[in-house]
């Protein structure tokens, strides 16, 4: 029986019992537990509360719709730019997967566009971020999620940083060896960009070297050809894609590869965030 006022549920044991001021803190898998919990809650609602909930639901739906419209408008800025904007990548990708049983299992740092532009309705459509914030997490963690998705026939997609990719590229060999379908998009901003921004901020604050923050923070001279790296591991690779008009056809080819049961990598030269 539910008698609590607040409930916090997360499968990640690292967060258990921390920070959340709730009555009941239990470890559990939200995907498995929520459907039962929602039914329990529904049964406990009387007619009066139901009307109030419906009214609140309508308000929230309208607010959500307004934020999506704003996000769409924001996404048009720099639509034809190269490097490709993250908004364009996310819009193009979603328009090709939205009618599939998709699952987004990796996002590059600070990539907020999918949650502003896409319609998330199922627990497995996003699996969160690295608990410890470690770079190098996104590629291998995405493959783990892709393996979990495989038997459900879900279309697994991930967008990961180029710097992140540099940590454990051999993940791709594992993907090829075990034939784990996953579309992996390298958010190639040719930088460990988070560090680039921190250095820039420090340089400005100290009033010196404001044009030197790219030293040690960018990945150039030479540029990395991620598609060739992928091919070397036996994985379909395409790119670097810099022309925004070449993006949709490249996505289409890579998605076809994934739907045939294979991993695919697309290297997209993108703006920073």
């Amino acid at each position: 029986m539910l008698g609590t006022r607040g409930l916090y549920m997360k499968a990640n044991y690292q967060d258990l019992g921390r920070y959340q001021d709730v009555d009941l803190d239990i470890s559990g898998d939200a995907e498995a537990s929520l459907p039962i919990l929602i039914e329990q809650v529904k049964r406990g609602i009387d007619e009066g509360r139901k009307a109030a909930f419906d009214a609140r639901g309508k308000k929230l739906a309208a607010a959500k719709l307004a934020t999506v419209e704003q996000a769409k408008l924001d996404a048009t800025i720099g639509w034809d730019a190269s490097p490709i904007t993250t908004a364009r990548l996310c819009a193009e990708l979603y328009s090709q997967i939205k009618d599939e049983d998709w699952s987004l299992v990796g996002t590059s740092i600070g990539l907020a566009r999918p949650h502003r532009l896409w319609n998330f309705t199922k627990p497995y459509q996003w699996n969160g971020l690295a608990g410890g914030g470690g770079v190098g997490y996104t590629l291998p963690a995405s493959l783990g999620a892709a393996l979990a998705n495989k038997r459900h026939g879900r279309l697994t997609v991930a967008i990961g940083g180029d710097g992140d990719f540099m940590f454990v590229p051999s993940t791709l060999w594992t993907a090829a060896h075990h034939q784990i379908p996953m579309l992996y998009i390298v958010h190639n901003n040719r930088a460990y960009h988070q560090e680039y921004m921190y250095l820039q901020a420090m340089a400005a604050r100290l009033g010196r070297g404001i044009t030197n923050a790219d030293i040690g923070t960018t990945i150039k001279d030479p540029l990395v050809d991620y598609a060739t790296v992928a091919k070397g591991f036996g994985v379909y690779g395409e790119g670097p894609v810099s022309d925004p008009n070449a993006l949709a056809p490249a996505l289409k080819r890579a998605i076809a590869m994934v739907k045939s049961g294979q991993p695919a990598l697309l290297d997209v030269v993108m703006d920073q965030r």
């Binding site: 720099g78 730019a81 921004m197 820039q200 901020a201 044009t211 923050a213 703006d271 920073q272 965030r273």
Partner: peptide, 26 residues
């Protein structure tokens, strides 16, 4: 570009993110 404004606000002035969302400047 040289002084790093694009790093947070985007090359097209489309906005981006540092420790929080950063505004579009176009």
């Amino acid at each position: 570009l040289a002084d790093g404004c694009f790093e947070c606000h985007g090359r097209a002035g489309q906005g981006g993110r540092f420790n929080y969302l950063t505004p579009a400047l176009a």
